[in-house]
């Protein structure tokens, strides 16, 4: 409990620091907000007045607090390009992103952990070597290239799946697999090494000496111990998926947060870029906190400290 609480404090601090960083980075990115919102023919006085109205002439720390105040009160503002409320955009695109990201996250563990277990139990067999070489390839392949390859093969050549779009299960398969690919590979390798380490541990020898069956030792004791480091790194997988989502959503035309963010940056739609950057940062930070809590639950050494 103490551990979880202290991690929560830490999480809040990280959220604050990263919100300052995002806010400041958007200011530093240059360009002119009026360029996106106003027609090219607008006069300089009109632009100046527009900046005044948006509060862009205030000191930057004041702008930050005004802005955070508005976000916390549930009104982050509107898009500059189409005047849509950001909250509406968040709920529309956020849902799509959750579907895609959640599926990818699920795949990472539902595929990665079992493959890693198989590799560890059949160490040095053809199955192990096959799984391990595949995972090496999967880690080396950049996902934008994989995405294009997947589109070419499964959409253009074979015509099994749509190349882009939203939001049925058929549309989900390619982007979710591409998004999960590297995470699966990393999880396979980690599960394998973690399982092997656990199998060779002294406590497993004790359980063998106690006459428990290999099957029982593996399924209950080895696996349970091996999962601890995997859970502890689940937070990293969240960050990875969020980062890759920008690329994968754009390539597959999946209307999620990543796509919105990329478009906003390209169009200098500052409120959108800023808000959605913050949302993604918050998602990663909170995700890490959840993973950390899971780690605490899985590891009795942290659970109670008596």
């Amino acid at each position: 409990m103490k551990h979880t609480a202290s991690r929560l404090v830490y999480t809040v601090i990280v959220l604050f620091v990263s919100s300052v960083a995002v806010f400041y980075a958007i200011r530093l990115s240059g360009g002119d907000a009026t360029a996106a919102a106003l027609p090219g023919s607008a006069t300089e006085e009109f632009r100046e007045e527009f900046r005044d109205r948006l509060g862009l002439n205030e000191p930057i720390y004041q702008q930050y607090f005004t802005y955070m105040g508005r976000i916390l009160s549930g009104d982050p503002g509107n898009s500059l390009t189409n005047n849509k409320a950001l909250t509406t955009m968040l709920s529309e695109h956020g849902r799509n992103s959750l579907i895609l990201g959640g599926t990818a996250f699920g795949l990472v563990f539902l595929v990665g952990v079992p493959l890693g277990i198989v590799a560890s139990l059949r160490r040095n067999s053809w199955a192990d070597q096959g799984i391990m070489s595949m995972s090496t390839v999967a880690m080396a392949v950049p996902n934008f290239w994989l995405a294009l390859l997947a589109v070419w093969l499964f959409a253009s050549r074979l015509g099994w799946l749509p190349s882009a779009g939203c939001c049925g299960p058929k549309h989900l398969i390619l982007p979710a697999v591409v998004l999960a690919f590297e995470g699966i590979a990393l999880t396979v390798r980690m599960t394998r090494s973690s399982m092997i380490e656990s199998q060779n541990s002294d406590y497993v020898r004790t359980l063998r000496a106690g006459g428990l069956s290999e099957w029982r030792i593996t399924c209950k004791h080895v696996l349970r111990n091996a999962l601890i480091p995997i859970i502890s790194l689940a937070g990293l997988r969240i960050g990875q998926i969020v980062g890759y989502a920008l690329i994968v959503e754009t390539i597959f035309g999946w209307p999620g947060l990543g796509q919105v963010l990329v478009n906003a940056v390209l169009r200098r739609d500052y409120p959108v870029a800023q808000f959605f950057s913050l949302v993604l940062v918050a998602l990663v930070v909170v995700g890490n906190w959840v993973a950390d809590t899971g780690y605490t639950i899985a590891n009795p050494r942290l659970r109670k400290s008596s």
């Binding site: 541990s201 002294d202 406590y203 497993v204 020898r205 004790t206 359980l207 063998r208 000496a209 106690g210 006459g211 428990l212 069956s213 004791h221 349970r224 111990n225 601890i228 899985a298 590891n299 009795p300 050494r301």
Partner: peptide, 24 residues
């Protein structure tokens, strides 16, 4: 396996690492 613990038991050197840390 049936003989282990039931007929022949063994105690190891390092009690710190010899017990499964995640179970009581």
């Amino acid at each position: 396996r049936r003989l282990r613990a039931e007929s022949i038991s063994m105690i190891f050197q390092d009690p710190i690492t010899s017990l499964d840390p995640v179970f009581t």
